[in-house]
Nucleic acid binder design. Structure first.
Length: 316
DNA sequence: AAAGACACCCGCCAGT
DNA sequence: ATACTGGCGGGTGTCT
């Protein structure tokens, strides 16, 4: 189960919560392992959305337990007095390497928290100039649909929250799962993060040839998973394998494998007492040092930091 | 700390 | 003609 916490604040956009939630729910029906979805806010209780409807926050920040933090957009996100109380919380989540998913103007909160410096950040074309103006250190992209930097995702907003949720399902359960959900909900499944906001209208639904290979890889993370071996397994040349893989998933095969390994290792580290060396071997990093560097690359923190943070979890 | 070894990535091109 | 394929080479990043 992947735990998603949805962070509410005064003036959030309801659609940015409802759209992704619909996707995650269907994902739960179609996969044995799905998502659990919970709302959190500075305090438990009702939170007013932009349109006036209220949602109940089921947990306060200090009680929140999650793998992925979903932050809806909304005009409220631009008002720092609304979001000030959330800053340490999102900083903490980022430090811990949790996946943080911003729908459109939610990125204002991360920007305010200083988490987007020097990063490429996707924003709705209407709000992009404002973001760029207020936070000069950020590389704002007002044309793409979404982007990912390590564990932080940003997106253009509104219905692209749905695209973003599909991209997350794709990352977690493979492209075929995401395509299936899109089909069930009658929404287009757009693969390309780089697709223009202006032409976001195509219906690109491709069955995926790589799910089987990746499931196979998932079973044996401790073994050699070089491109050569994966390509052999898929009965393709290395060249064709890398090309087709990138085309269909938007990520290179090697990066994908590394991500699987880091995720598994992280789960092991967080769940218990195993020595880093042992975790590293089990997950296909030959030694702890290599694993450490892979963590820094993909999560932004070292295994040791994550374990330490884990211990202090209740102190926000 | 540096340098050689190695894997990966990707544009290019020729073959099917 | 067009799309798909796979080998090559060089640039880049990572490991030891």
């Amino acid at each position: 189960m992947i735990r998603i916490a949805c962070l509410l604040y005064e003036g959030f956009e309801l659609l940015d919560v409802a759209g992704p939630l619909a996707i995650f729910q269907v994902a739960g029906h179609q996969n044995k392992e799905g998502y659990v979805f919970e709302t959190v806010a500075a305090a438990r209780g009702p939170v007013r959305s932009m349109g006036g409807l209220e949602l109940q926050a089921a947990a306060s920040l200090r009680k929140a337990r999650f793998d992925t933090l979903l932050i809806p957009g909304g005009l409220g996100a631009r008002e720092t007095q609304n979001t000030q109380a959330l800053i340490p919380f999102v900083q903490r989540a980022a430090e811990e390497g949790r996946r943080i998913v911003c729908v459109s103007s939610a990125a204002f909160i991360l920007a305010e928290a200083g988490l987007l410096k020097g990063q490429r950040v996707v924003m709705h074309w209407g709000a992009a100039p404002i973001l760029a103006d207020r936070y000069p250190g950020i590389d704002v992209d007002g044309a793409a649909l979404f982007a990912r930097n390590k564990n932080i995702w940003t997106s253009a907003g509104s219905l692209s929250g749905v695209d973003l949720a599909l991209a997350i399902v794709e990352q977690d359960f493979g492209a075929a799962a995401a395509a299936k959900i899109a089909k069930a909900l009658l929404v287009p499944f757009r693969r390309s993060a780089a697709q223009s906001q202006q032409t976001a209208a195509s219906t690109d639904v491709r069955p995926d040839r790589f799910d089987e290979v990746m499931a196979w890889a998932r079973q044996r993370l401790g073994e050699d998973l070089s491109l050569q071996r994966l390509a052999d397994k898929a009965a393709l040349s290395v060249r064709q394998f890398t090309r087709a893989f990138r085309l269909s998933t938007g990520e290179s095969a090697a990066k994908y494998v590394e991500r699987l390994r880091v995720e598994r290792a992280r789960a092991l580290i967080e769940s218990g007492a195993s020595a880093f060396e042992e975790v590293a071997r089990k997950c296909g990093f030959d030694n702890a040092e290599r694993m450490r560097r892979a963590f820094v690359r993909t999560l932004g923190s070292t295994p040791r930091e994550l374990r330490r943070l884990r211990k202090n979890r209740n102190r926000y």
